[in-house]
């Protein structure tokens, strides 16, 4: 009897209409409170379940909520709750599928950048609880190893890192919401180009930062788990575009050295080590 009752009540919690057959069925099993009819008892729980989802999503996606306003955000939250049952006890994982869900909603097509803004905010959310980087190979040993066998090694991004390339200027929009420029009349330039970014935690600081076009393919290659020689080729290719005659290991004066490029990734904390493939 317990399982059947729980299944019946669970169905009623997610019905769009309070007058549905599922709700009517469970109402027959609910004993009203002295001052509260059975339907209101059920409505309290239906409302509370929806509110928990709305609040949890609002914490993960605050800028998305600001962009569309609370009524719209609540409507999206309710649809998401019904379409994507929560499969994990951890409320913090509730938003994992939200950006992809948003991308599929035709009624949100006027805010085409909303899904990518959701991906940015989800990246920040994940960075908070992501594990710390594992201790890396000694830098001197790593340097020696990748110089002699770049095809046998791979670089490692921090466990907290998310790379996001968007056709929309979502990081600029996000930043405008962080420093409240939006409230002071900031407007998005309709012709603004797309942006590539990394979302990451460095120590205890969580941030999103622009990635220059020259570094983007290298970071993507590292994220894909490709060998170091791939990233050297990408860096070399970029350099050779400027100086086609220079060697791979040394750079002409007016170009960015390959090893300097890799070094910069380490210094920024975007690459945290290497390991054999």
């Amino acid at each position: 009897m317990l399982r059947e009752l729980q299944q019946e009540l669970a169905r009623a919690l997610y019905e769009e209409e309070a007058e549905s057959a599922a709700c009517a069925s469970v109402l027959e099993r609910i004993r009203p409170l002295p001052e509260l009819p059975a339907k209101q008892c059920l409505d309290l729980y239906r409302g509370s379940v929806a509110q928990v989802v709305h609040d949890a999503l609002g914490e993960i996606f605050p800028v998305c909520a600001e962009l569309v306003g609370d009524d719209c955000f609540r409507s999206v939250s309710n649809r998401y709750m019904r379409a994507a049952p929560s499969r994990h006890a951890d409320l913090a994982r509730l938003g994992d599928g939200w950006p992809d869900f948003v991308a599929e909603q035709s009624f949100l097509s006027s805010v085409s950048y909303l899904a990518d803004m959701g991906r940015l905010e989800l990246g920040l959310h994940h960075a908070h609880a992501a594990p710390w980087p594992e201790p890396s190979v000694d830098p001197a040993k790593l340097s020696e190893a990748i110089s002699s066998e770049p095809e046998a090694w791979r670089f490692i991004l921090p466990p907290s890192a998310t790379l996001l390339g968007s056709p929309h200027p979502v990081l600029s929009i996000w930043e405008a919401h962080q420093d409240r420029r939006v409230e002071r009349g900031w407007k998005l330039d309709p012709a603004a180009p797309g942006e590539q970014m990394i979302i990451c935690r460095h120590g205890t600081e969580i941030y999103a930062d622009f990635v220059e076009p020259s570094l983007w393919p290298i970071l993507r290659s590292i994220a894909a788990g490709e060998a170091v020689d791939q990233q050297l080729a990408l860096a070399g290719g970029l350099r050779r575009a400027h100086s086609p005659d220079s060697s791979l290991a040394f750079d002409s004066e007016d170009s960015v050295p390959i090893l300097t490029t890799i070094q910069a990734l380490f210094e920024r904390g975007w690459v945290v080590g290497g390991r054999p493939l």
Binding site: L2, Y45, V49, V52, R87, L94
Partner: peptide, 25 residues
Amino acid sequence: AWTSSGGRHHHELLPLPFLDETVQV
């Protein structure tokens, strides 16, 4: 209380019927 059923987490403390069966569970 119960907070999940059918593989779905409701993230809400839902009420139990006071049954012998519930005591056993």
